[in-house]
């Protein structure tokens, strides 16, 4: 793994490299060198299996981190190629010509993060979210709770119970009634004041 990282450092502008364990390392590259590096890793170093393309939203730094995880079937080791792209203008070079499966990942990233991959086949087609008109949902500024409250609502005629109170009324009906009466009296007393 170490020799591989040294070879990559000679060839590319590796800004950061972490060795997570014996068979897994991560390197960070400028976004312009990723396709070159992926081609090099696939054809020269034997990393023939594209495991996944993933994106992480670092909203506080204004970037998306893209991670390409590649696997070498001969040495049974993985390398994660990370790159950072601007969050306001998320465009990345496509690698669909290297792996046929890459276009599916790119289509998903386009939909879920809004990262564009010009030239990737069918990248603008909706994949999972047909008819979605909000910001891409996997971005950190998409508020799932707010969206759920605005979009979904309880059916009419449904009653919700506070579980603690409902159990009290079921198991201790007398005490619950007395408690209710006392609370009512207290409320009335307050109003008179």
């Amino acid at each position: 793994m170490k020799e591989l990282l040294e070879r990559l450092e000679d060839r590319f502008t590796v800004t950061e490299s972490d060795v997570e364990r014996d068979n897994l390392a991560f390197i960070t590259l400028p976004s312009k060198e990723v396709v070159q590096a992926a081609t090099h890793l696939r054809d020269i170093e034997g990393f023939g299996h594209l495991v996944m393309i993933s994106a992480v939203d670092y909203i506080e730094r204004g970037i998306f981190q893209l991670t390409y995880i590649l696997h070498n079937y001969d040495k049974h080791s993985d390398i994660g190629v990370r790159t950072e792209i601007d969050r306001r203008n998320p465009v990345m070079d496509s690698i669909h010509h290297l792996w046929a499966a890459a276009r599916v990942y790119q289509q998903e990233l386009r939909e879920m993060f809004g990262i564009d991959f010009p030239g990737s086949p069918r990248v603008d087609e909706p994949m999972i979210l047909e008819g979605w008109d909000n910001i891409p949902p996997m971005r950190k500024d998409f508020d799932t709770k707010k969206y759920a409250e605005e979009t979904y609502f309880p059916r009419e005629g449904r009653v919700t119970y506070d579980p603690a109170r409902a159990m009290e009324e079921k198991n201790y009906p007398l005490e619950a009634r007395v408690k209710k009466r006392i609370q009512k009296l207290l409320r009335e007393g307050k109003d008179e004041d």
């Binding site: 972490d18 997570e20 897994l24 991560f26 495991v51 996944m52 993933s54 992480v56 991670t67 995880i69 993985d78 994660g80």
Partner: peptide, 20 residues
């Protein structure tokens, strides 16, 4: 803080989790 990828052989093939 950190990131990792772990994999296992499921009945359908390689299954993996990338966690940051």
């Amino acid at each position: 803080a950190g990131e990792t990828y772990v994999r296992a052989e499921s009945g359908r093939g390689e299954m993996g989790y990338y966690m940051v």
